[in-house]
Structures are given as C-alpha cells and as structure tokens.
Design a protein around this nucleic acid. Sequence first.
DNA 1: ATCCAGGTATGCA
DNA 2: TGCATACCTGGA
Length: 294
Amino acid sequence: MSPRPSWTDWQPLALPEPLAAPVLAEVLDGGQSFRWTLEAEGVWQGAWDDCVVRLKSAGDGSLRWAAPQTLAATAPSKLATYLAASVSFSRRADELPWRSDAHLARCLAAFPGLRLLRQPLGETLLCFLCSATKQIVQIRQMVGLLARRHGRELAPGFHRLPTWSELAAVSEENLRACLLGFRARHVAQTAGFLAGHPGWLEGFADLPYADAKARLCELPGVGEKIADCVLLFGAGRFEAFPVDVWILKAMARRYGLEGWTPRQVAHFGRAHFGPAAGLAQQYLFAWERAHGRD
DNA sequence: ATCCAGGTATGCA
DNA sequence: TGCATACCTGGA
C-alpha cells in the first residue's frame, strides 16, 4: 500500500486541565470532527489544516502527540489552536447553570474536561455541509474521499481536505462520486459563491453572533443547524447552540420540551445555558450518545 | 423490499 | 408563520 511516514517520538502537550482517554475519544470522535480514526488502543490519528498527528492520553490525563517528521515543526502551535489549549473548559463549564440543573450536573460529572475543538473554518463548513441527514460513519466516509481525491497530500498516505478554491475546480459530478448525494450541489454552489467572494469566509471574527449566523445562512445548503456547528466548532463561538434531531429529542425528554421546534429549542438553550451554551450542548450530546436508551 | 439517516429549500394553506 | 415534501444513496 502507501508508504508510511516516519513518526516523531511522543511529545507532551500542555492543556489547562486533564483529559482522560474516554473523554479524549468523545472530543475527537463525538461529532465535532469527522477526521479522526483509532489507530491503536487509545491512539487517535487525525488530520486538519496542513497537520497530521497522533494523540493519546497518558494514565494521568496528560496528552502526548506524535507527527510525521516532515510535519513536526508546526505541529505544537497547530495543536494548541486546534485543541483550544488557551481555554480552560472546566472553568467555562463551571459557569454553566449546573447548580440548578441536575441533568446538566450529571453530564458535567460524566465527561470531565470535555473540550470544544477550534477547527479551521473552511473545513468545518465543508464537513457540516456533508452532514445533512447522514450518520457519522457516512460523513467520515464522504470527507475521507474528498480528501483523498481532491486534497493535497501532506505526508505519504495522508491528504488534507480540499480548500474551497480547490473545490471550486471540482465538478458536481465528481463530488457526487465522493458519495455526497444531493449535498454535492450545496458544496458546488457554495464553492462557486466563495470563489466569487474572496475573503468572505474570513470576515466573521468581529460580527455579533446573530449577524455571523445570518451571514453563514446565506450560503447554499447552510441553515441554522449547520451555521451553528460552523460557528461553534470552527470559530470558537461558544454561544452557538446547534439543534439536530438528537438534541431535539434530548431536550424534549430531559427538559420537558415536547413539541418544541428546533428554533425554539435553540433559543431556550442559549437563554438557559448562557454564553457557553455550545459547551452545554456538547455535554448533552455526549450524554445521549452514552445513555441514549436509558 | 421499504425505510431512514446529526438538514435545507421550496411550495402551498 | 406553519407544515409537508423533495433531495441522493448506502445500509439496516
């Protein structure tokens, strides 16, 4: 098969709080990203931006990373950004209303140190455009094909996701060949729009949440849920509260919101959980993934 | 075989 | 504003 890169030794990675192996798994493979695979027991391998790394949690909750030798130089700073290493998520979690919300309290206790990733905005947009009415396994397959067929090779056998300017050069037919189905049209149209509006994706930093979200919703195939995912996982906007069918069911069940629309639930979530509502959403999601049938 | 999947856009009351 | 329906397609 493809030649294997030569990997660095394991290096320490500093985070503000420990991250035990099961919680690391939830962070990397719990629906925020679709680009991580379990390489060996407790060893995750993933790619984003121009990075390829392996990650594992040591017994004490400290993290170790390794990278292909050729990519090792930039890995520490890229990892720090990706894992939002400057953010203390335990502190943000403590700001949530767990003292008066028993369900939230048990979610926090079940996944100590749960983090929100800070992924590249463009990649996040692409991945969540592919996510509409698909299961995680299938989304991983789609973006894996997009990377392999249309993304630059970073190291032997490892490809990055195509940039939007690269995607603009890919036909809708070839996107469909990556199993995107009707999402191929959304990706093609968004690529065309972005090609005609240079810098459009970079103009979000200073916009208020509602404006940034409205702006994202101008893109073909982007509605409220996808916009919230892009803002939360790709822009560090923790007030975003994505409501998918699972969160809709979870909120109905745990908070008595039967019959509420996604938009109503999103509004409730932002009001009830506050400025870190998106972190609460991730905890609720993790809980349902683990205890959904209870 | 038939139905559904981590949504969105569109067309009608 | 609110609700139903189409949109692709692999897998249960």
